[in-house]
Design a protein around this nucleic acid. Structure first.
Lengths: 255, 255
DNA sequence: GAATGTGAACGGCTTCACAGCC
DNA sequence: GGCTGTGAAGCCGTTCACATTC
């Protein structure tokens, strides 16, 4: 298979479902912990528990990567760590810029998990001239004016936007124009980007609102339990909630 | 899933899909912006564009809430704002505690969008005695020892965990024991909670890893385009990426 | 015997397309 | 004519259950 007709035959067997991709980092984290404890192999059952998913899902996920397990035994921890890292593209170094060094931007710059897995904070950028030159997390903040040069000089393809909502789209446009093709957006706005650019968003207030919805629903149920009538649904009914032992996935939005 | 009885007959017509719930805050934000500009009505097309989804999805979503639109006209902005707010439980006040006042916790405490919609930071809690009493975002930090009392005195049902990974589960257990039933987790760990407790997680490094995966895939495609052979798939092929004009949803995990 | 890998069934969400209403 | 509301179709992801392999 060579030609690029209908889809992408691509390098390997290709076509890992997005939902699976979103769980790979979870598996990787659990595997890394096992690796540090020098555990040689895990069963799908054990690993699934550690990652907070069910074992059938995990096995299905891994089956998209290939047959990396041994029947009757389980998975080799080190080998899987390597395979998943490779699949996620973490065997290479990804320079990242953070734009908007307010409270959040500074927190992100200081975030250890950042550097840990193939990501490197290549630059911090802020629009406030007073910030310029000041070191945050040991990295001097640079002014927005130099954004394009910074992106190009460092070969940055992943940008993090931590600016106020009002500035986000403009920053996004400049990042994209300068060559960034993946954006992690913390600003509470919908970003428009051309085809081929991925945007993922992290939105605190949306998360809280979703929790509030469920919280309200729970309160409603308790109120119903207080009403004693026909069928008793009380007590055990409390559980339900919603979920599914998964670890779903946020968004990838296009233009 | 659904653990309870068959389902919940519940207060109203009930049964709003989780995917829809996750988008309501998006619609609400877009509507609020329109409201501030005193726009009286919107069509599904316009609102969908502002929220970054497609109009069919938006109409379907709204149909779960009821028939709030007018055919041939559109939706009344103010009315929709109210209905969605009510549905999300934002017409009431939700006291929230933030545990772990490091860089991230402080950023969250300072985050304006927090207070804006029905959420109120009732308390900041940290394990470091040196932090106790210090004001962050105008709120004095309290020590972890008093966690239970703080939760109960303030009637808190939503907790935000911004501690290091190692402390998260322990904090979570204490929050839950004290009566918290919704948790927003920023620590990079899988939390175990009893049935009836909702957990949503925000994980920076997972988001980056997902972006890296797609980024790598793009690089692979470019390499293939470089190989000139039979059928030209180059140029326009760049687009594709993945997505769907949505705004998907993170996770809700159970025990 | 033990645990993986996977076809098949299932369920939920999205998209389509159009009937119904202003 | 314009736009909402929604059945029906299609797609994707999850779960089941078992054949396969060690």
């Amino acid at each position: 298979m060579a030609t690029g007709r209908t889809h992408r035959p691509a390098t390997r067997s290709r076509g890992i479902p997005e939902a699976t991709v979103a769980r790979l980092p979870l598996y990787l984290r659990a595997l890394t912990a096992l690796s540090e404890r020098s555990v040689p192999t895990v069963s799908s059952e054990e690993l699934a528990a550690a990652a907070g998913v069910n074992s059938a899902k995990l096995r299905k996920d891994f089956s998209y990567l290939g047959s990396y397990g041994t029947r009757g035994v389980g998975y080799d921890v080190e080998y899987l760590v390597y395979q998943i890292s490779r699949e996620l593209g973490l065997t290479q170094d990804w320079p990242v810029v953070i734009v908007g060094i307010g409270n959040l931007g500074a927190a992100l710059a200081n975030y250890g998990g950042f550097a840990s897995r193939g990501f490197r904070v290549a630059a911090l950028i802020d629009a406030d001239p007073a910030m310029a030159g000041k070191p945050v997390a040991g990295i001097p903040v640079q002014h927005t004016d130099d954004l394009e040069k910074i992106i190009q000089d460092n070969g940055v393809s992943i940008g993090v936007i931590a600016t106020p909502a009002g500035a986000a789209q403009q920053v996004c446009d400049r990042l994209v124009a300068a060559g960034v093709t993946s954006i992690l957006n913390f600003a509470p706005t919908v970003l428009s980007v051309p085809d081929g650019v991925d945007v993922r968003k992290v939105d605190l207030s949306i998360e809280l609102q979703i929790l509030a919805f469920h919280e309200q629903r729970k309160a409603g149920e308790e109120a119903m339990e207080a009403l004693p009538d026909g069928l008793p649904a009380a007590a055990a009914a409390k559980g339900s909630a919603d979920q599914g032992p998964d670890g779903d996935v946020p968004a990838v939005m296009p233009a």
